[in-house]
Simulated assay, not measured.
Amino acid sequence: MKRILLTLAVLLGTAFFVPQNVVLADGTIGSANANSSVIGKNNKSSLKTDTTKQTNSLSNDGSPANQSESTIRDKLGETTGSPDMNWVTSNILANYKMYHEDGSITDFALGASHIVTDLFTAINLNIVYPLFDQSLSTMFDLTNITNGVNNILTDVGQYTKSSWQSQAFKDLLYLAFGIGLVWVFAKTINHGGGLKSILTVLVVAIIGTAWVGSGSKVLQTINTLTSQAQTQVFTATSNINQTSFSDTGDSFQNALRYVYFQKAVARPFALGNFGQADVASAYQNKDKQGNPYRLIGGNVDDKVIASFASKNHYISKDGGLEWYQSAIAFMSPVMSVAYGVPLLMIGLANLLVQLGAVLLYYLAPFT
């Protein structure tokens, strides 16, 4: 019995004092006891580094945003003067909503106001604004529209000339001209003034021939000039950087969409969350109410909301402005329609005029 106890004591002593071989992280075999201090130091250093990185990555507002402030301002054209509305629509449009701090489950009035706010904000951001934005993007894609209409005019011009020169059409033309002369002769006998009627028929024939021959080029020139004039109208009536209206290409289209975006999306966002007329004014007051670009950047969790609510009574559950947010959200779809319809009508009117010119020229040989 004593031998058994002695043997156990020796084994225990060996376990405590003899270094154990272990496979280290690099694949080599080493002593666990000899490296314990090193591993401990490495673990502490790694933990400290991870903690430092996490601390640096977390701002005072909570989790880091998906999009940085500088990127957002560049894409909005605030620093470059050339907004990229396709990027804005794809990356940050959904972040232009009403933010609010949640209350207790028994605060039914607060919960009801938040439901109303979220509902009408979603209607504006997901239905009304995208509909008008896409329509404006199509209607004011003036480069493609102008070139497309000009191509149609060229094709119609070739068709008109070939029709005019065809034998069948010549026979109809001669028949019509003969009938016109007979009508003029009959009118001369009954009412006089035959010379004036004859001259009228000749003038119509000459002008008609000239129109069929060169009307395509004339309409193409007018079409291009009207598109350029349209950009000048917006240059004179808009406060956006006029360099964006320098041509009829993507810069004009993006500038126009940016104007609509500021009215239909950015304005309700600034009013509801900061009580300011625009994001620029809210940004100037960022030290008191919070940086609006932090919300626009996305990845807004409860910690971010709490950091804003602590100094922004528009977002705070105790600010008493939850129904104010609801009113702004309720009016946002209405105002988006009010701002979008006139712009859309301008683009639609221009397109209808261009299509009317095509139709007129197409019917010219028959009229």
Rank of each mutant, 00 (worst) to 15 (best):
L153Q: 05
T154A: 03
V156G: 01
G157I: 12
Q158N: 14
Y159F: 12
K161Q: 10
K161G: 03
K161H: 06
S162N: 14
Q165I: 13
Q167W: 04
A168V: 15
A168C: 05
A168M: 05
F169E: 00
F169T: 10
K170L: 05
D171W: 09
L173N: 10
L175E: 10
L175W: 08
F177A: 06
F177V: 09
F177Q: 13
I179C: 08
I179V: 11
G180C: 04
G180L: 04
G180Y: 04
L181E: 04
W183D: 12
W183G: 07
F185C: 04
A186T: 03
K187T: 08
K187V: 03
T188H: 10
I189V: 10
H191M: 02
G192T: 04
G194N: 03
L195Q: 11
K196M: 03
T200Y: 02
V201S: 00
L202I: 15
L202G: 10
V204I: 15
V204H: 01
A205G: 12
I206G: 03
I206V: 15
I207N: 03
I207P: 04
G208I: 10
G208P: 10
A210H: 04
A210S: 05
W211D: 03
W211E: 01
W211Q: 08
V212K: 05
G213H: 09
G213E: 10
S214M: 08
S214W: 13
S216C: 05
S216D: 11
S216T: 14
L219K: 01
Q220F: 02
T221S: 06
I222R: 00
I222H: 00
I222C: 01
I222Q: 01
N223L: 03
N223W: 00
N223V: 11
T224M: 00
T224A: 06
L225I: 13
L225N: 14
T226L: 06
Q228P: 04
Q228G: 12
Q230D: 06
Q230W: 06
T231I: 07
T231S: 12
T231N: 06
T231F: 01
Q232N: 12
V233H: 03
V233Q: 05
V233S: 01
F234Q: 07
